[in-house]
Design a protein around this nucleic acid. Structure first.
Lengths: 145, 145
DNA sequence: TCCGTAATTAGAATAATTCCATTTGTGCCT
DNA sequence: AGGCACAAATGGAATTATTCTAATTACGGA
């Protein structure tokens, strides 16, 4: 397994799903759309709110189902920081997260290939890392708030 | 803030607490003891079970309180991997975690100072990281199970 | 010893997520 | 077109880790 810089090709939403024998339903498209549309790190709850503006009948279970599907297809990433609700992220390039302990705001932090390789090299002989998660927490830039 | 290799001195349990004006109660000592005694990554639930063998009256709230206190004093580290229950870890050296997706087992992975510095260098101008969390998930060594 | 506060306790409350049983939608085959 | 089989969505109940609350207990210092 490698973590090279552009890890996922610009494949279309429908194609990614169909490759796995899954259907590009309107709920899935909508969930994907609202995550992509606003470059923050929404929780399932946030996504539910946004989706219901477009498809008012949508249930919570559906939002969770769709998210699971999208994550499974590699269309969005799941971000777990401490105990807070899971967040979702359309940025598929290798990146870390920085969480400001004061504001709760989450920032993407790019990881260069060199550092990525080094991190990967930490994994001992015989272990195969499919996924790397790096997150920082601390105080955000005073310039930004 | 630095993440130099031996980040916490070998201060005694009581001293660490008293420095913060907290009391080294028997419950706190016991919680600390059971985490230290078995070098795994127990959940609050595991810890509760173990503590009750020594102090049968102990409540769940107390376990959580004690854990919060110990984490606050830097005596144990909190480990959050994906959505699973929080785990606790007496290893205070800078290290990452590897979670085997098959067995659920968690391994400590040492981080050398050089890689640590590089990771730290990712944090953008104006941000101050108090904490770094790095975790891998994938399949563990076949040699080990 | 007594007092004030810290710590513990039991149980209720919360919040995110998952499960379940049912209904709805879609693609396919004739 | 009609019907079938199965995938997906739905509403609500259930689960689970964790936190809160109000009441009790235990220390440490005057």
């Amino acid at each position: 397994m490698t973590f090279s810089l552009p890890p996922v090709s610009k494949k279309s939403f429908s194609t990614s799903l169909r490759e796995k024998g899954l259907r590009p339903t309107k709920q899935r498209a909508c969930v994907y759309g609202v995550i992509l549309g606003k470059r923050d790190h929404p929780t399932a709850d946030d996504i539910y709110e946004r989706v219901r503006k477009h498809l008012p009948g949508t249930s919570f279970a559906t939002v969770y189902n769709c998210l699971e599907t999208l994550v499974g297809c590699g269309l969005v990433r799941q971000v777990n920081l401490d105990r807070s609700p899971t967040r979702y992220c359309p940025n598929l390039t290798p990146h870390a997260h920085f969480k400001c302990t004061k504001t709760g705001k989450i920032y993407d932090v790019q990881i260069d290939q060199d550092t990525l390789s080094r991190m990967q090299a930490l994994v001992p002989e015989g272990f195969e890392a499919e996924n790397i998660d790096l997150c920082f927490s601390g105080t955000g830039s005073t310039a930004r708030h």
